[in-house]
Design a protein around this nucleic acid. Structure first.
Lengths: 354, 354
DNA sequence: CTGAAAGCGCTTACAG
DNA sequence: CTGAAAGCGCTTACAG
C-alpha cells in the first residue's frame, strides 16, 4: 500500500474533505449537516454545498461508533424452515417493514432460528454486537419471557399484537376477533349448528385469542362447539386435525381454521375423504392470503393486513428508538371475506339435529 | 452524565480493560485474540483468560471501522408484497442462509423492493453505507445489469443460479432441467401427447431455462407442445393461463407449471371449470413445496432444495469475501416427485389423436 | 457563532 | 516477542 496522505485518497470523500472545501473545521461540518444549533445560515449553506459537490455521505460505521446507534432494526423468526416457507404472513409483514425503513435509510436485520435457545442467543447477540437499535417482538407467546429479556438487554422493542403483560412496551395491534365472530355468525346464519375449530399453536397468544373468539361467538349463538383441536399452525397439522374431526362422534358441518395454509390442507383432506365442500362441510380460513382465492372452491376467509401491520410496527419502533416512547397503535380489525367454500348447512344434518 | 473515567464505567468492558487485567497493551490484546503471529503462547493464554473473565466481546462497530468489514451479508428481494407472500422459495432460502450465518457471527440484511429503480438504489446504499460485505444475486435476469453494478460498486456477489455472462462472479447452481425432463417423460410414458407448459416470467433466467428444458424434452419424445404460455409466476397468472389453455383450439391432457403456486391455482381453475384432475387433465408443479402435498389431488412436482441452496450460497459468499475468490458450486439437481395429480392420458383423447 | 481537541473501541504498521 | 502511537471517520462537550 502506498502511504496515504490523509484525505487525498481516491476513495470516498470524508468529513475532512468537506471541511477543507468549505473552509471550516470538521466539527462544524457535523453540526451543519445534522441540523444542530450553533451554525450560521450562511455557513450551513456553504457546508451543504461543499458536501453536495463532493458527493459526501457520512460514513455510517463511524457515525455508529460515536452515536451508538446503528440505523438498523431486527426481526427474529423462530420456526423451522418448512413452516416459514408455507406461511405467507411474514414475507408480507417484512415487505411492510421495508416500505418504511427504505425511506429512512434504515435497514432490516433478519434472524431465522429453529428453537427457543437459538432465539434467545439471537436476541443476545443482536444486543451484544449492537447490530440493531430495536427489535420487533413477534409471535407473542403466553407469558412471553422475551419482554424480560429485552429489559435485561436494555433493548427497545415493539409488541406485534397484544400481550397480557406488556411490560411497558408499545404494542401494534390488529384485532382478529371481529373477523372470527363474523365468520361464526355467517355460518350460523347459513343454518350450521355443528361448528368445529382447528386452532393454532396454543403457546401463541394470537392462537389463543382466535380460539377464544370462536368459542365465545359460538356460545353467543346458543351453540356448543362440535370440536376444537389445537395444532401447530402447519398444513400437516391442519390435515391431521381435519382427519380427526371426520372420525369424531359428531361430524361438524362447518370447520374454521386458524390460518389459510391449514384451511387449504383441511380442504384437501376433506376432498380426499370424499367429503364435498361446501355441500357437506363448509370451510373457513384465516389471513385472506392470495392462496385462498385460488383453491376450488375458493376459501371464505378472514382478512388481516400483514403489510400495513409491518409498516405500522416499523414506524412505532422507529419512534420508540428515537424518542424513547411510542403510543400503542390499533389497526383496522380483521374482516370476513366470503367465497365459495361456505354454504347452507346440509338439510340432512339440520334434520337430524344434535 | 457523570464524568467517566476511561474504562472504569459500569458498561461493557473494552479492550483496555482486558489489556489492564492481563498487564499488556491493548494492541497486544488485539493480536492475541485474533490469532495473529507475534504473541508468545503464554501471553496469548493470559490475554484470553482475562478476556474470558471480564466477559469481553470486541465491539463490532469499532472493529468494522478499522477493518472495513461489517460481518453482514445482503439479500435484495425485488417483487411486490403479494408475490413475496405467495412464493415459498425465499423464506426457505433465507432460512438456509441463516443456518450458516448464525454459526459465524454473521447477520443477514434484507431489502424488499418493488421495482427496478428501487432495487438499484438498494444495492447502491448497501454499498455506500457499507452495510454488508457482499450480496446474493438472486432472480437472475437475462442480460442482468446487476453484475456490472456490483463491479462498479466494488461489491462482492454470488450468483444464485446460472447466468450467461457471469462476469467473474462465483455461481451456486441447482440444475432444474433434469426434473423438468423427468416430468415430461413421466407424462409421455402415461400416454400423454398433448402437453402444455405454463412458464414463469420470461425476463428471469430460470424461467427461460425451465421452459427450454420442457420444449427440448417434448421434442425428444417426438412431440410438439400443445401450448406454452408465459406468465409472471403468480397464482393469478397461473389461473389466467390455465383458463386460456382450456379455451385453446386443442386442449392439453397435461399441464406443467413453472412453480407450485401456479400449479395450485391452475388446479383450482381446472376444477372450477369442471375439468377432472387427473382423469381429464394431469397437472405437474415445480418446487416440491409443502403446499403440493396438501391439495387434492396432491401435486406431482419437481423438488429442488431451497434451504440447501441458501446454505451453499452463504458459504460461497463468505469464502468470496474473505479470500477474494470462491469456486462455483453445483447442487444436487431437481428431481421429480410423483403424486395423484398425474395419471394416464384420457382414452378418449388418445383415440381422437391430433 | 466558530475552532481545536478528545473520544467512540478497535486494528495495524512501526520501533525497539 | 512487546509497547506506544496513529488511524478508521465521525460526534460532542469545551473554550473562546
Amino acid at each position: 500500500m502506498s502511504p496515504r496522505t490523509k484525505s487525498s485518497t481516491p476513495g470516498a470523500p470524508t468529513i475532512v474533505d468537506v471541511a477543507r472545501a468549505a473552509g471550516v473545521s470538521k466539527g462544524l461540518v457535523s453540526l451543519a449537516v445534522n441540523d444542530r444549533p450553533g451554525v450560521s445560515d450562511a455557513t450551513r449553506a456553504r457546508v451543504r454545498e461543499a458536501a453536495e459537490q463532493l458527493g459526501w455521505r457520512p460514513n455510517l460505521q463511524a457515525r455508529t461508533l460515536s452515536t451508538q446507534t446503528t440505523y438498523a432494526l431486527g426481526l427474529v423468526l423462530r420456526r423451522d424452515a418448512r413452516i416459514v416457507a408455507a406461511d405467507p404472513f411474514y414475507p408480507a409483514f417484512m415487505a411492510g417493514i421495508e416500505s418504511v425503513l427504505s425511506t429512512q435509510g434504515r435497514v432490516l436485520v433478519l434472524s431465522v432460528v429453529g428453537d427457543a435457545e437459538a432465539e434467545e442467543r439471537a436476541y443476545r447477540s443482536l444486543a451484544a454486537d449492537r447490530r440493531v437499535d430495536g427489535v420487533f417482538l413477534n409471535d407473542l407467546r403466553h407469558g412471553d419471557d422475551r419482554v424480560a429479556l429485552l429489559a435485561e438487554l436494555g433493548m427497545p422493542g415493539v409488541l406485534i399484537g397484544r400481550l397480557d403483560h406488556p411490560g411497558g412496551l408499545p404494542a401494534v395491534v390488529l384485532d382478529d376477533r371481529p373477523g372470527v365472530v363474523a365468520a361464526v355468525h355467517h355460518l350460523a346464519d347459513l343454518g350450521h349448528r355443528e361448528l368445529a375449530y382447528v386452532a393454532g399453536d396454543p403457546a401463541l397468544q394470537h392462537a389463543r385469542t382466535r380460539r377464544r373468539a370462536f368459542e365465545e361467538a359460538v356460545a353467543a349463538r346458543g351453540l356448543t362447539p362440535t370440536a376444537v383441536v389445537d395444532t401447530d399452525f402447519t398444513m400437516a397439522g391442519g390435515a391431521t386435525a381435519t382427519a380427526a374431526l371426520l372420525e369424531g362422534r359428531l361430524r361438524p358441518t362447518a370447520v374454521l381454521y386458524a390460518n389459510d395454509p391449514m384451511a387449504v390442507a383441511g380442504l384437501g383432506a376433506l376432498q380426499r375423504a370424499g367429503v364435498r365442500v361446501p355441500d357437506e362441510v363448509s370451510v373457513v380460513g384465516f389471513d385472506g392470503t392470495e392462496l385462498a382465492h385460488h383453491t376450488w372452491p375458493a376459501l371464505t376467509t378472514v382478512r388481516s393486513d400483514p403489510e400495513q401491520w409491518g409498516a405500522a410496527a416499523a414506524r412505532t419502533l422507529l419512534a420508540l428508538t428515537s424518542t424513547g416512547s411510542a403510543p400503542d397503535v390499533e389497526l383496522a380489525p380483521a374482516e370476513l371475506v366470503t367465497a365459495r367454500s361456505t354454504g347452507p348447512a346440509p338439510a340432512l344434518r339440520q334434520a337430524q339435529g344434535t
